[in-house]
Protein backbone atom coordinates (compact mmCIF):
# COMPACT_ATOMS: atom_id res chain seq x y z
CA UNK A 1 0.00 0.00 0.00
CA UNK A 2 1.37 3.36 -0.92
CA UNK A 3 1.94 5.49 2.14
CA UNK A 4 2.53 2.55 4.42
CA UNK A 5 6.18 3.49 4.83
CA UNK A 6 5.24 6.96 5.97
CA UNK A 7 2.73 5.53 8.43
CA UNK A 8 5.37 3.20 9.82
CA UNK A 9 7.67 6.17 10.30
CA UNK A 10 4.97 8.17 11.99
CA UNK A 11 4.41 5.20 14.26
CA UNK A 12 8.01 5.44 15.41
CA UNK A 13 7.65 9.14 16.02
CA UNK A 14 4.51 8.52 18.03
CA UNK A 15 6.24 5.82 20.07
CA UNK A 16 9.02 8.23 20.97
CA UNK A 17 6.49 10.89 21.83
CA UNK A 18 4.59 8.60 24.15
CA UNK A 19 7.71 7.07 25.64
CA UNK A 20 8.88 10.45 26.78
CA UNK A 21 5.66 11.04 28.70
CA UNK A 22 5.34 7.56 30.14
CA UNK A 23 8.89 7.79 31.42
CA UNK A 24 8.08 11.11 33.02
CA UNK A 25 4.99 9.66 34.65
CA UNK A 26 6.77 6.49 35.70
CA UNK A 27 9.54 8.31 37.52
CA UNK A 28 7.25 11.04 38.81
CA UNK A 29 8.77 14.01 40.51
CA UNK A 30 11.83 11.96 41.35
CA UNK A 31 12.85 11.99 37.71
CA UNK A 32 15.28 14.78 38.39
CA UNK A 33 17.05 13.22 41.32
CA UNK A 34 19.23 10.40 42.46
CA UNK A 35 19.19 7.01 40.87
CA UNK A 36 16.16 7.82 38.72
CA UNK A 37 18.19 10.47 37.04
CA UNK A 38 20.96 8.00 36.59
CA UNK A 39 18.69 5.45 34.95
CA UNK A 40 17.37 8.03 32.58
CA UNK A 41 20.89 8.93 31.56
CA UNK A 42 21.97 5.34 31.13
CA UNK A 43 21.69 2.85 28.30
CA UNK A 44 18.22 1.73 29.38
CA UNK A 45 16.68 5.14 29.01
CA UNK A 46 13.59 5.52 26.86
CA UNK A 47 12.12 8.64 25.41
CA UNK A 48 13.75 11.96 24.93
CA UNK A 49 15.21 13.44 28.03
CA UNK A 50 16.74 16.85 28.37
CA UNK A 51 19.00 17.97 31.15
CA UNK A 52 17.80 21.37 32.29
CA UNK A 53 21.10 23.20 32.24
CA UNK A 54 22.03 25.33 34.18
CA UNK A 55 19.50 24.36 36.84
CA UNK A 56 20.64 20.78 36.44
CA UNK A 57 24.13 19.79 35.58
CA UNK A 58 25.59 16.49 34.67
CA UNK A 59 28.42 15.34 36.81
CA UNK A 60 31.39 15.05 34.53
CA UNK A 61 33.46 11.88 34.62
CA UNK A 62 36.76 11.85 36.42
CA UNK A 63 38.90 12.05 33.33
CA UNK A 64 36.99 14.98 31.98
CA UNK A 65 39.49 17.62 31.05
CA UNK A 66 39.10 21.31 30.95
CA UNK A 67 41.56 24.14 31.45
CA UNK A 68 44.35 22.95 33.75
CA UNK A 69 45.06 24.03 37.31
CA UNK A 70 48.19 23.91 39.40
CA UNK A 71 48.33 21.70 42.44
CA UNK A 72 49.52 23.33 45.64
CA UNK A 73 49.88 21.74 49.03
CA UNK A 74 46.76 22.02 51.20
CA UNK A 75 46.59 25.26 53.12
CA UNK A 76 46.44 23.35 56.38
CA UNK A 77 49.35 21.11 55.53
CA UNK A 78 51.55 20.81 58.63
CA UNK A 79 54.94 21.29 56.94
CA UNK A 80 54.53 23.30 53.78
CA UNK A 81 51.08 24.86 53.52
CA UNK A 82 50.34 26.27 50.10
CA UNK A 83 53.67 25.15 48.69
CA UNK A 84 53.70 24.69 44.88
CA UNK A 85 54.01 21.18 43.62
CA UNK A 86 55.40 22.57 40.42
CA UNK A 87 59.17 22.65 40.15
CA UNK A 88 59.27 24.84 37.04
CA UNK A 89 60.86 22.06 35.03
CA UNK A 90 59.16 23.39 31.91
CA UNK A 91 58.03 20.09 30.48
CA UNK A 92 54.40 21.16 30.28
CA UNK A 93 55.39 24.35 28.46
CA UNK A 94 57.36 22.31 25.95
CA UNK A 95 54.74 19.68 25.35
CA UNK A 96 51.79 22.07 25.11
CA UNK A 97 50.66 21.91 21.47
CA UNK A 98 49.39 25.49 21.08
CA UNK A 99 52.12 26.84 23.35
CA UNK A 100 49.82 28.59 25.78
CA UNK A 101 51.78 27.91 28.97
CA UNK A 102 54.23 30.57 30.11
CA UNK A 103 56.48 29.87 33.07
CA UNK A 104 58.96 32.14 34.80
CA UNK A 105 61.36 30.03 36.77
CA UNK A 106 62.43 31.49 40.09
CA UNK A 107 66.01 32.62 40.54
CA UNK A 108 68.15 32.94 43.60
CA UNK A 109 68.36 36.72 44.10
CA UNK A 110 72.03 36.56 44.99
CA UNK A 111 73.61 33.82 42.93
CA UNK A 112 71.15 34.05 39.98
CA UNK A 113 71.03 30.32 39.98
CA UNK A 114 67.65 28.85 39.03
CA UNK A 115 65.46 27.57 41.81
CA UNK A 116 63.07 24.73 41.21
CA UNK A 117 60.00 26.84 41.75
CA UNK A 118 57.80 28.84 39.46
CA UNK A 119 57.96 32.53 40.11
CA UNK A 120 55.07 33.08 37.76
CA UNK A 121 52.91 30.73 35.78
CA UNK A 122 50.40 31.70 33.12
CA UNK A 123 48.00 29.77 30.96
CA UNK A 124 46.17 31.57 28.22
CA UNK A 125 42.91 29.67 28.40
CA UNK A 126 41.63 31.20 25.20
CA UNK A 127 44.38 29.33 23.41
CA UNK A 128 44.41 26.18 25.50
CA UNK A 129 42.89 23.35 23.51
CA UNK A 130 42.18 21.20 26.58
CA UNK A 131 44.29 18.41 25.25
CA UNK A 132 45.54 17.31 28.64
CA UNK A 133 49.16 16.82 27.62
CA UNK A 134 50.48 19.09 30.35
CA UNK A 135 48.82 16.94 33.00
CA UNK A 136 49.84 13.74 31.26
CA UNK A 137 53.52 14.52 31.03
CA UNK A 138 54.19 16.54 34.19
CA UNK A 139 56.62 14.37 36.13
CA UNK A 140 55.61 15.91 39.47
CA UNK A 141 51.82 15.55 39.19
CA UNK A 142 51.74 19.29 39.64
CA UNK A 143 49.36 20.29 36.89
CA UNK A 144 45.98 18.69 36.48
CA UNK A 145 42.95 19.09 34.29
CA UNK A 146 40.06 20.80 35.99
CA UNK A 147 36.34 20.07 35.84
CA UNK A 148 35.21 23.66 36.04
CA UNK A 149 33.94 24.46 32.59
CA UNK A 150 31.97 27.59 33.35
CA UNK A 151 34.62 30.13 32.53
CA UNK A 152 32.77 32.60 30.36
CA UNK A 153 33.36 36.20 31.28
CA UNK A 154 32.65 39.69 30.06
CA UNK A 155 36.26 40.69 29.70
CA UNK A 156 38.19 39.49 26.74
CA UNK A 157 41.54 40.86 27.68
CA UNK A 158 43.33 39.69 30.77
CA UNK A 159 40.68 37.63 32.52
CA UNK A 160 41.43 34.69 30.34
CA UNK A 161 45.10 34.63 31.06
CA UNK A 162 45.14 32.71 34.27
CA UNK A 163 48.04 33.57 36.53
CA UNK A 164 49.52 31.45 39.25
CA UNK A 165 47.11 32.65 41.87
CA UNK A 166 44.10 31.89 39.72
CA UNK A 167 45.51 28.54 38.67
CA UNK A 168 46.48 27.25 42.09
CA UNK A 169 44.17 24.83 43.81
CA UNK A 170 44.75 22.68 46.84
CA UNK A 171 45.76 19.10 46.46
CA UNK A 172 42.64 18.04 48.35
CA UNK A 173 40.56 19.53 45.53
CA UNK A 174 42.19 17.15 43.10
CA UNK A 175 41.41 14.30 45.44
CA UNK A 176 37.74 15.23 45.44
CA UNK A 177 37.28 15.65 41.72
CA UNK A 178 39.31 12.63 40.68
CA UNK A 179 39.59 10.21 43.57
CA UNK A 180 40.54 7.16 41.53
CA UNK A 181 43.15 8.87 39.43
CA UNK A 182 44.61 10.63 42.44
CA UNK A 183 44.88 7.31 44.24
CA UNK A 184 46.59 5.70 41.26
CA UNK A 185 49.07 8.52 41.06
CA UNK A 186 49.73 8.40 44.77
CA UNK A 187 50.44 4.72 44.47
CA UNK A 188 52.91 5.36 41.68
CA UNK A 189 54.62 8.04 43.76
CA UNK A 190 54.64 5.90 46.87
CA UNK A 191 52.49 8.11 49.08
CA UNK A 192 50.05 10.96 49.16
CA UNK A 193 52.71 13.62 49.48
CA UNK A 194 54.63 15.39 46.75
CA UNK A 195 57.24 13.13 45.28
CA UNK A 196 60.07 15.20 46.73
CA UNK A 197 58.63 15.02 50.20
CA UNK A 198 58.35 11.28 49.84
CA UNK A 199 61.93 11.01 48.69
CA UNK A 200 63.04 13.26 51.51
CA UNK A 201 61.25 11.05 53.98
CA UNK A 202 62.74 7.93 52.52
CA UNK A 203 66.16 9.45 52.68
CA UNK A 204 65.62 10.52 56.24
CA UNK A 205 64.46 7.07 57.13
CA UNK A 206 67.50 5.60 55.43
CA UNK A 207 69.76 8.06 57.20
CA UNK A 208 68.15 7.24 60.50
CA UNK A 209 68.54 3.57 59.88
CA UNK A 210 72.14 4.16 59.01
CA UNK A 211 72.61 6.33 62.05
CA UNK A 212 71.15 3.62 64.20
CA UNK A 213 73.48 1.14 62.58
CA UNK A 214 76.48 3.36 63.06
CA UNK A 215 75.42 4.00 66.60
CA UNK A 216 75.08 0.30 67.17
CA UNK A 217 78.44 -0.28 65.60
CA UNK A 218 79.87 2.49 67.70
CA UNK A 219 78.34 1.02 70.81
CA UNK A 220 79.86 -2.28 69.90
CA UNK A 221 83.18 -0.65 69.30
CA UNK A 222 82.83 1.25 72.53
CA UNK A 223 82.35 -1.94 74.41
CA UNK A 224 85.76 -3.10 73.35
CA UNK A 225 87.55 0.25 73.02
CA UNK A 226 88.91 2.61 75.65
CA UNK A 227 86.54 5.36 76.83
CA UNK A 228 88.53 8.13 75.15
CA UNK A 229 87.75 6.79 71.70
CA UNK A 230 84.07 6.39 72.40
CA UNK A 231 83.33 10.11 72.02
CA UNK A 232 84.94 10.29 68.62
CA UNK A 233 82.96 7.34 67.31
CA UNK A 234 79.66 8.74 68.48
CA UNK A 235 80.16 12.17 66.92
CA UNK A 236 79.65 11.17 63.24
CA UNK A 237 76.63 9.17 64.19
CA UNK A 238 75.02 12.24 65.68
CA UNK A 239 75.82 14.18 62.56
CA UNK A 240 74.26 11.58 60.35
CA UNK A 241 70.88 12.18 61.92
CA UNK A 242 70.41 15.91 61.64
CA UNK A 243 66.65 15.61 61.43
CA UNK A 244 66.51 15.01 65.10
CA UNK A 245 68.23 18.28 65.82
CA UNK A 246 65.58 20.63 64.36
CA UNK A 247 67.55 23.84 64.85
CA UNK A 248 66.92 26.69 62.38
CA UNK A 249 70.34 26.28 60.85
CA UNK A 250 69.79 22.66 60.05
CA UNK A 251 66.37 23.53 58.54
CA UNK A 252 67.80 26.10 56.21
CA UNK A 253 70.52 23.76 55.09
CA UNK A 254 67.99 21.07 54.44
CA UNK A 255 65.81 23.41 52.44
CA UNK A 256 68.79 24.44 50.38
CA UNK A 257 69.67 20.85 49.67
CA UNK A 258 66.12 20.05 48.76
CA UNK A 259 66.00 22.84 46.22
CA UNK A 260 69.25 21.79 44.71
CA UNK A 261 68.03 18.29 44.38
CA UNK A 262 64.81 19.43 42.83
CA UNK A 263 66.67 21.44 40.27
CA UNK A 264 68.94 18.54 39.54
CA UNK A 265 65.99 16.21 39.26
CA UNK A 266 64.27 18.51 36.84
CA UNK A 267 67.45 18.78 34.80
CA UNK A 268 67.82 15.07 34.79
CA UNK A 269 64.24 14.66 33.67
CA UNK A 270 64.67 17.14 30.90
CA UNK A 271 67.82 15.35 29.82
CA UNK A 272 66.19 11.95 29.91
CA UNK A 273 63.43 13.26 27.78
CA UNK A 274 65.81 14.71 25.26
CA UNK A 275 67.66 11.48 25.02
CA UNK A 276 64.58 9.32 25.05
Amino acid sequence: MYGLGILKGLGVTFKHFVATYTADVRYGLKRYTGDKFETRQGVDATGIYTVQYPEEKLAVPERFRFVPFLVVEDYDHPDRPGHDWCTACGICAKVCPPQCIWIVRAEDPVTKRPIAQPEAFFIDIDICMNCGYCAEFCPFDAIKMDHDYELASFDRTWTHIHDKERLSKQFSYWKTIAPTTAAEEAEARGGWEHIDVIKEKKKKAAAEAQAAETAAAAAEAAASAPAAQQDEAAAPAAEAAPAAAGTTDADAAREERRRKREAALARKHAKDQDEG
Binding site: K57, L58, A59
Partner: peptide, 12 residues
Amino acid sequence: RGVANLVNDQVR
Protein backbone atom coordinates in the same frame (compact mmCIF):
# COMPACT_ATOMS: atom_id res chain seq x y z
CA ARG B 1 31.41 7.82 36.82
CA GLY B 2 30.67 11.43 37.34
CA VAL B 3 31.67 12.54 40.79
CA ALA B 4 29.72 15.26 42.42
CA ASN B 5 31.86 18.25 43.17
CA LEU B 6 31.66 21.98 43.44
CA VAL B 7 30.43 22.38 39.92
CA ASN B 8 28.29 19.39 39.24
CA ASP B 9 25.44 17.82 41.01
CA GLN B 10 23.74 15.05 39.05
CA VAL B 11 25.77 11.94 39.62
CA ARG B 12 26.06 8.95 37.34
